[in-house]
Design a protein around this nucleic acid. Structure first.
Lengths: 344, 344
DNA sequence: TTGAAAGCGCTACCAG
DNA sequence: CTGGTAGCGCTTTCAA
């Protein structure tokens, strides 16, 4: 590996000059500039990042923080795609992304206790998912790093954030059940209050229900897994026996509900239509294929990356809340036919 | 953030002494050692990694390389779990993991062209998946970094690698079809020759077939997606109309095949039994739930991390091929009943 | 337009 | 057992 010094020596100039050229700083004659550039090119020179970091205290790395529960087998991986998009958007600017999974203890201990931060290894923090507590986020924000939230946001505090259009998405899927399939008794299966995405999707459901002059029915669970989805299905027909449509705040719940429905002898979508949210990888392999709201995960990551860059170079204010559009993925669980319907 | 110098000054000792203590090096009196440790503790001191890297040229970061196609929506994410396990195993030793997704151009250009490597940002390379070409791997191995392969290995060259027990897994699932369900005409759907896991699973299929004195039937596709699985199903009944069992080298193919089978009017598992490999997250939501071979992905990542550490501190030879045990996940597509059978 | 030199924070060698 | 000091490779004043 060649160094700055080497280039300087071979050209008979100082390292200061070479550094200026390589960093596009003014005060170097066109002629020397070209000589330096040529030799650097020829030598395949790249600055040693450790050295540059030490001198500038900029590390060119961003941390992707996510709760480790997101990597349990039960969860459909959502954040890896975001991380991928993030990495893609950042790499051209020389930034790299480090994965940091947090367990509950680390979350409770706060960001200042993270070794990777204590060692000053990062310039920025991308915190993904509602699993990361407001307390943690707030504590992180005073650490002096550029901070961005993905699939999460704090109501009270200003943070740059990238989220799916949860409300619009749920409105659309609910309206689909109402307008296209003429349902009037539609239950919402949701997670705990305070979970941003769950709250917002609830709002979308409500706005569609109210716009149609219908009555809302809500089943609130303490989690949004396939298991709680199954539980929610039972509860639904106990509380609201005339239900013909179900809107679940995510696909896991929707699929759990479909399982339970099957066991209860109810046909989907004939007896009850189901729509989910997320469009996780197996939504189209559910039985029947699940109609759901697709989130452009990789694109969300890319967008987060772009925003982060702008934030770091100061071209946008520290608080930019961005929403990315979702799309209704119509399959069969809502009552529509799709082109892949098995010829049974 | 406090520095080494600060500790030294406040204690009236040299930075050399403090450094020795903090790095557990000999040549410091018990008394000073304790004074240093105490103050360091009190100050929450952590060495600045950029400075340490510059001095030692050890970066405490490992790169997780994976082909970007693994993050396309079509693929079931497999490597993020491995990455998570890797990160977990490494974090206690102060190592962090960076994600690097490679596109075809980067793969062709070789590792030496990766900016992250040119900038000397990493100590080690974990290359995941058979998408990474032998040429790339070989080129990487001469870069002087510790190198490890996951879910891949080179026949000809010695590399530390962590792979699932592909052969044993496929043997077990094939034998299950033979012994438990009495199938005698079992087709293998496989991917291209040269793909390590596909080859090995083929070997497992063959050994089970031969052990039972049966005749092998193989359909070889140029890829292992749901699409090629559908195609393979059609081809299967064109070539081997009496097939009653299908072993697919992965779940994507198996699920694709099940789709096509459904459309062809064949009942699963009544007319034809199907088993997959991988136990991707939606295998249990397939219709019917897919019997498959489960791979402990997170554990594979952890193991890779441990091996990497041992390799870096020289306690194991550079070539240790490790296999992790798989487990047959019995559901319904093979003909077994599972406890969650819908009451239809 | 250029160079000398101080430093970023740490490690490691050489004396004492 | 301890301290002084020379780097690691780069950036950034300050002078020239």
């Amino acid at each position: 590996m060649s160094t700055l010094r080497e280039i300087a020596d071979r050209l008979g100039v100082s390292t200061a000059t070479v550094s200026r050229v390589l960093n596009d700083k003014p005060g170097v004659s066109q002629k020397t500039r070209e000589r330096v550039l040529t030799l650097a090119q020829e030598l395949q020179y790249r600055p040693n990042l450790a050295a540059r970091s030490l001198a500038t205290s900029s590390t060119k790395t961003v941390l992707f923080l996510v709760h480790r529960r997101q990597f349990s087998a039960a969860e459909d991986p959502f954040y890896p795609f975001i991380m991928h998009g993030l990495e893609e958007a950042l790499k051209d600017d020389g930034y790299n992304v480090m994965l940091v999974t947090l367990d509950d203890a680390q979350l409770a201990a706060g960001p200042a206790n993270l070794r990777v931060l204590q060692e000053q290894r990062a310039d920025a923090l991308v915190m993904a998912g509602p699993d990361i507590s407001p307390k943690f986020i707030l504590a992180a924000s005073i650490l002096g790093l550029t901070t961005l939230l993905v699939d999460n946001a704090l109501r009270e505090s200003p943070f740059t954030s990238v989220q799916p259009q949860n409300e619009e998405g749920a409105h659309t899927s609910t309206a689909h059940l109402i307008e296209t399939h003429n349902h009037t008794r539609i239950v919402l299966m949701r997670g705990p209050q305070g979970w941003a995405s769950s709250d917002e999707r609830t709002a979308g459901y409500l706005s569609a229900i109210h716009a149609a002059g219908l009555e809302p029915f809500i089943v609130e669970m303490e989690d949004t897994t396939t298991e709680t989805g199954e539980e929610a299905a039972k509860q639904t027909f106990k509380e609201f026996p005339e239900t013909t449509g179900i809107v679940a705040v995510n696909d896991a719940m929707a699929i759990g509900a479909m399982r339970a429905l099957g066991r209860m002898g109810r046909r989907i979508p004939k007896d009850v239509a189901v729509v989910g949210f997320d469009d996780i990888s197996w939504a189209s392999y559910a039985n029947p294929p699940l109609t759901t709201v697709a989130i452009p995960t990789v694109e969300m990551g890319r967008l987060a990356g772009r925003l982060l860059l702008e934030q770091m170079n100061g071209s946008i204010s520290a608080t930019t809340r961005v929403r990315v559009a979702t799309q209704l993925a119509i399959r069969q669980s809502c009552g529509c036919d799709d082109e892949l319907a098995p010829a049974e």
